[in-house]
Amino acid sequence: MTPLLDVQDVVRTFGAVRAVDGASFAVEERSITGLIGPNGAGKSTLFATIAGSLKPDSGRIVFAGARIDGRAAYRVARAGVVRTYQAARVLTRMTVLDNLLLASTGHPGERLTGVLLRPRAASAHERRTLERAHEMLALVRLEAHTHEYAGTLSGGQRKLLDLARVLMLEPSLVLFDEPMAGVSPALRVELLEHILAVRRDRKITFLIVEHDLDFVMQAADRVVVMNEGRVIVVGTPEEARTNEEVVDAYLGKAH
């Protein structure tokens, strides 16, 4: 089976720093793949490169059989690869509901020509989007905050809103940047349940950057370990945990 995402020899430099230095790995469809590695390993740069916010210097990124490297971020998102940010980038000065309503693709009402020439199609689409938004709010249990500014939510609630917003887009692949960072222990369990349920029910694939190794070991089917811009190990969580090179990367050679 061909993988959903295939990262081939991707290099991205910042001046003299080779942040990503020939990274290659594949993400299988419907898997939860953890991308781990010590600070400065190049995970975030690689993430931004897959999502289209950074262009790779060389290498190929193939998603569902088509190259997406070099495409603008919004086109990568439309193709079905949706990213989140480490600190959830909710739109703070808009309501929770508006945050969700924004997450719809091909909305005729989002084009001036659509507003003017196809008002019926626009309002029909808006109605469907509204229905789905309320569904999502129920799913992540944020209904009580529907009409509040997203800026009033706690860090953990913002992660939930971000997850709901990503699911609204019906992506094939979610790039999840440190979902557990800054989330309270109670919400961690909830967030993990959501991710597992979503994978099961909606056939969504996850690529997750995470520092919380316990979470990765619990949630991921496969783990990709990066160090100094390169992928050093790809395997099951168990294989990664016991791999000599991984232990070296995390603890230093002299552990």
Binding site: Y74, A77, R78, L91, T92, L102, T105, G109, V115, A122
Partner: peptide, 28 residues
């Protein structure tokens, strides 16, 4: 009226956080 349409909503999203709007598939 224009600002109350979904089009106006995208504009406000760009004002708040352009990168986030792009990651939601908007051609900012």
């Amino acid at each position: 009226l224009a600002m109350r349409t979904p089009w106006g909503r995208v504009l406000r999203a760009i004002r708040d956080d352009e990168d986030a709007a792009a990651s939601l598939g908007k051609n900012t």
